[in-house]
């Protein structure tokens, strides 16, 4: 039973990690219906920018944090301007291929600059965040990520539901030509959604970095683990991403604990194929109805 609880806590924390990683992905999908295959690389870029500011330049943590967020926000704009703007109005297949290319590009660039080594942030989270509950100890990182996750969930939930920009974003994702003809500024929506998504990615990337250390390969693999999570939760649903993340995390650690450690890495993808066959829109996704 002890083992079971240990696995459960571990699973939930891994799951939270996945959920966090999935948030930025859902952001981009919700606002432009682009499957971003460069997601893991965006996470890694955020984590490395923070590393440069906090460790290499030795800035105080809050300032480094703010600089990182501003930097990645700008980076999102630049990515959109350079690579995605020329493709507005093109077929979706080309945009998706473009993100595949961007992924390879960013990963290569990060490897050239930083190499494949493992880096660590200085320990800066206050110890007061630790929660002790019987034999189970929850590290401050997880508490912090939980708080950030809740904030994300509510802020973006409200953003998409009530703010005009959020509604523009959803309209663009749903039907680009129709949104254009109704006077939605599609270019601005795209730019903004990539900027916000890149910022969200940076946040998740930093938390991933605090938890596991920063390594280009590990973090970019996380970008692919996002797919089972969002398919399980439903591609458009932020809440679904969190629940999907928790389920996948639990499943992974329980498989690792009780069945075999090597199976652990693929079980999310097995689930993914199964879900695509059984309930393709996921738990909370919108069921697409096509009318001609």
């Amino acid at each position: 039973m002890e083992f079971f609880f240990q696995l459960m806590v571990q699973g939930l924390s891994v799951g939270f990690l996945y959920a966090l990683a999935a948030l930025g992905f859902v952001m981009i999908f919700k606002s432009s219906s682009v499957l971003n295959f460069a997601h893991g690389e965006l996470l890694a870029i955020g984590a490395f920018i923070f590393l440069v500011f906090s460790v290499r330049l030795n800035l105080p943590i809050p300032i480094a944090f703010i600089f990182t967020l501003a930097g990645t926000f700008a980076l999102g704009f630049i990515i959109e301007r350079l690579f995605l703007r020329p493709l507005i109005g093109e077929a979706l297949i080309e945009v998706i291929m473009l993100t595949v290319g961007l992924a390879a590009m960013f990963k290569g660039l990060l490897l050239v600059i930083f190499g494949g080594n493992l880096f660590n942030y200085p320990d800066f989270l206050p110890k007061g965040l630790t929660i002790q509950w019987g034999a189970v100890v929850i590290q401050p990182v997880y508490v912090a990520s939980f708080i950030i996750g809740i904030i994300f969930l509510s802020v973006f939930g409200f953003f998409f539901k009530y703010s005009s920009q959020g509604i523009y974003m959803r309209s663009v994702a749903d039907n680009q030509p129709a949104a254009l003809s109704l006077g939605v500024h599609v270019r601005r929506v795209f730019a903004l959604s990539w900027a916000i998504a890149s910022l969200v990615c940076a946040l998740s990337g930093i938390i991933l970095g605090i938890m596991n250390g920063i390594n280009v390969h590990d973090i970019s693999v996380m970008g692919l683990k996002v797919f089972p999570v969002v398919i399980l939760g439903g591609l458009e649903s932020i809440g679904g991403a969190i629940i999907g993340g928790l389920i996948i995390g639990l499943l992974e650690t329980f498989t690792g604990g009780y069945v075999s450690t090597s199976l652990k890495e693929v079980i999310p993808f097995v689930v993914l194929v199964f879900i695509l066959l059984v309930k393709p829109y996921g738990l909370f996704g919108l069921v697409e109805i096509e009318r001609v």
Binding site: F83, L98, G101, M105, F106, L111, G115
Partner: peptide, 23 residues
């Protein structure tokens, strides 16, 4: 050793440039 990962970068760059300029 540092230019070895450039391979990946150049593949990515080639994909991106071709999609944008000569689809």
């Amino acid at each position: 050793l540092t230019i070895a990962p450039l391979r990946e970068f150049i593949f990515g760059l080639a994909i991106v440039l071709f999609i944008i300029f000569e689809p």
